[in-house]
Design a protein around this nucleic acid. Structure first.
Lengths: 221, 221
DNA sequence: TATATCCGAAACTGTGTAGTTCCGTATATA
DNA sequence: TATATACGGAACTACACAGTTTCGGATATA
């Protein structure tokens, strides 16, 4: 008898595959919330940012935020990580035939603005990065690495066409731009404009590679 | 009549110069408290730092801290500013006869450690700097400016002895070191060791100035 | 030695925010 | 059209920390 009962219980499906009705979770508000989080992060920094600010800016309820992310730290890590999607496409870089032309071709108002925002966000999470390896990795993948990657590609092409020495230390040289723009924004708090970027290319990067900027370099400014 | 009364009042000393007894305020604990504040700042960042932590580390009472500084922000600004006193003395810099020798002479374990601590503090206040001009100025005077100033002096001497071109852009070039070490510490979170600093000098700074590192450069590592 | 004052410690207050809960409404599915 | 569910909004709890107050003990001065 007991055996029969047990068998029946075992045969009965554990879950009844109930009919699903009503609205489905579609995560459609996630981008707005993450975008709002990045804005607040850039403006007030990690500790200054409150979930209420983020929810208000995304016109969402606080509960909606917590339905998707279990904590403020989770939201920030996710928001920073999702910036990677908007990063530069390495297959559609300028190709002018010279390293200088390619580097200057990267200087567009849109790119300058994006980099500024990324650096503001960097400043906002700088203190946190030291204590959260997860956040540190997200920042590295979404902000740090993409910047250097572009320079590496452009320099590698310059090597391929024989414009610069094959043994140039691309790893180090590709960090000059990211380093100096970060320093100028975060530490010196001076604007990173077209003029500064061109002067950096012509005064440091090209000379370090043994190249001379053209005599009419001023025409680019 | 009024005049007489007024005269009497004026003649009477405003304060009675009372006899002072007891212990005098000597601010003798200020250095310990500011030092503790800098330590906590480097470890936890501005928002993570609490006055209790600072007081405990300085073996002082919280009330003692508030007797001297009216707020947490005040203490941090003062502590950062007082770092300037420990900054490099521009009159006692290495003088080896070559720019490379002078630059490498600056690389001492003590200096590497100090710079690391300063950069940790920078990271801790990075988010705050954007919203407090007072703190921004303190950081600039105590951390940012002294670093570049050393390089400027060494390069100017190199110009004077005809080692590098007189029209070299010292202002920009003197920022290569500070920028790249800051980036490496704060963003990449890699160690700034002797090897990295020498490679930066030989790969970027000297080539950008038209100099070649000696063939036996590896001997310095 | 007497005393005025500072000190460290600890208790206390007020505020701000992370995270939760609840509710009336909107909406996609059946 | 009916309904289950997610949504925005607001109220709520728990807690951590800035800043204040209090107090017994230490200490320099007279």
């Amino acid at each position: 008898m007991e055996l029969v009962a047990m068998t029946q219980l075992d045969v009965t499906p554990v879950t009844d595959a109930p009919v699903k009705l009503g609205r489905k979770r579609d995560h459609s508000r996630d981008p707005e919330i993450m975008d709002a989080a990045l804005d607040v992060l850039a403006e007030t920094g990690y500790d200054g940012m409150t979930i209420d600010m983020v929810a208000a800016r995304a016109k969402a309820g606080k509960a909606t935020v917590y339905r998707r992310w279990s904590s403020k730290a989770d939201l920030v890590i996710d928001a920073v990580a999702c910036m990677k999607k908007g990063a530069n496409d390495l297959d559609n870089l300028p190709d002018t035939g010279t390293l200088r032309g390619d580097l200057i071709g990267m200087i567009k108002p849109h790119a300058i603005h994006d980099n500024g925002r990324k650096l503001q966000i960097m400043a906002g999470v700088a203190a946190m990065v030291a204590r959260s390896p997860e956040l540190a990795d997200a920042v590295n993948d979404a902000i740090v690495e993409p910047r250097a990657a572009v320079n590496r590609v452009l320099m590698r092409r310059a090597i391929d066409r024989g414009e610069i020495p094959a043994d140039a230390d691309i790893e180090t040289l590709s960090l000059i731009g990211p380093s100096m723009t970060a320093y100028r924004t975060l530490v010196q708090r001076k604007p990173v404009d077209r003029e500064f970027l061109i002067s950096m290319i012509d005064t440091i990067l090209l000379p370090a590679l043994g190249l001379r900027p053209p005599a009419d370099a001023a025409a680019d400014a």
